[in-house]
């Protein structure tokens, strides 16, 4: 997989991957973690979240882990491909910032 095919990531996707990179979470936890981290105002709703999660699972970026026993929440963890994409996106953004920042720094 070439991660660059998927760049740039939508802010929502980037934040989800970033949050999952720190450890597995279930749906509600993800919504709260993204909300807590996002000053840009990325607020998720369950229906949309699971749509994104399904797509990312399909791409092999994340994995669903069924909770132990019945009635337990399903959690999601990041897969190696997901980390690759996340890293690639962050590198891309860093480059972008490096190039853009001088324009503001001088003024």
């Amino acid at each position: 997989m070439d991660p660059h095919d998927h760049l740039p990531l939508a802010p929502r996707d980037l934040l989800i991957l970033a949050v999952l990179a720190e450890g597995p979470l279930h749906g509600y936890g993800l919504i709260k973690a993204v909300e807590a981290r996002s000053q840009s105002g990325v607020l998720l709703d369950p229906a949309n979240l699971y749509r994104v999660l399904r797509r990312m699972t399909g791409l092999g970026w994340i994995r669903a882990v069924e909770g132990p026993g019945d009635g337990r929440r399903r959690t999601y963890e990041i897969a190696p491909d997901g980390r690759t994409v996340l890293r690639a996106e962050l590198t891309r953004l860093e480059h972008l910032l490096e190039q853009a920042r001088p324009a503001v720094a001088g003024s």
């Binding site: 749906g27 509600y28 919504i31 369950p46 979240l49 699971y50 749509r51 399904r54």
Partner: peptide, 21 residues
């Protein structure tokens, strides 16, 4: 109103997440 495949896979989880919120 979601397609049945989606509802089957994730419906319960969505509802639970909403319920917690």
């Amino acid at each position: 109103f979601l397609p049945s495949s989606v509802r089957r896979d994730d419906g319960e989880e969505m509802e639970r997440a909403f319920s917690d919120l």
